[in-house]
Computed example of a mutant assay.
Amino acid sequence: METMNVKEEARRLIDKLPENCTWDDLMYGIYIRQGVETGLADVKAGRIRTVEEVRNRFGLST
């Protein structure tokens, strides 16, 4: 994903919200967007683990 202007992206997010949205709705949208971007950056940087690795680390059955 290419780097985008934060203000432009914030405006797009706001424009997609319904007219009767709350501040919590806006903050949730920002939170989700930030989490997705962080996850994509982790994948791009190779900071990933397989489900099997995570299960083994926490002693969970497969």
Rank of each mutant, 00 (worst) to 15 (best):
E2M: 10
E2L: 09
M4R: 15
N5Y: 01
V6A: 05
V6S: 03
V6T: 10
V6R: 08
K7I: 15
E8Y: 02
A10P: 00
R11Y: 10
R11C: 08
R11K: 14
R11V: 13
R12F: 06
R12W: 05
R12N: 09
D15R: 15
L17R: 03
P18D: 12
E19R: 15
N20W: 07
C21G: 03
C21N: 13
C21I: 10
T22D: 04
W23A: 05
W23M: 10
D24Q: 13
L26G: 01
L26R: 02
M27L: 14
M27N: 11
M27P: 00
M27S: 08
M27K: 11
Y28E: 15
Y28L: 12
G29N: 06
I30D: 00
I30A: 03
I32W: 04
I32L: 07
R33L: 10
R33K: 15
Q34E: 12
Q34Y: 07
G35T: 13
G35V: 04
G35E: 11
V36C: 01
T38G: 03
G39T: 09
A41R: 11
A41H: 05
A41P: 00
D42G: 12
D42T: 07
V43N: 05
K44C: 05
G46V: 06
G46Y: 00
R47L: 09
I48D: 08
I48G: 04
I48T: 15
R49H: 12
T50R: 01
T50Y: 02
V51L: 10
V51C: 04
E52C: 04
E52R: 10
E52Y: 04
V54S: 03
R55D: 13
R55H: 09
N56L: 09
N56C: 06
N56D: 15
R57H: 10
R57K: 12
F58R: 07
G59K: 00
G59T: 01
L60Q: 08
L60A: 12
S61W: 02
T62G: 12
T62R: 03
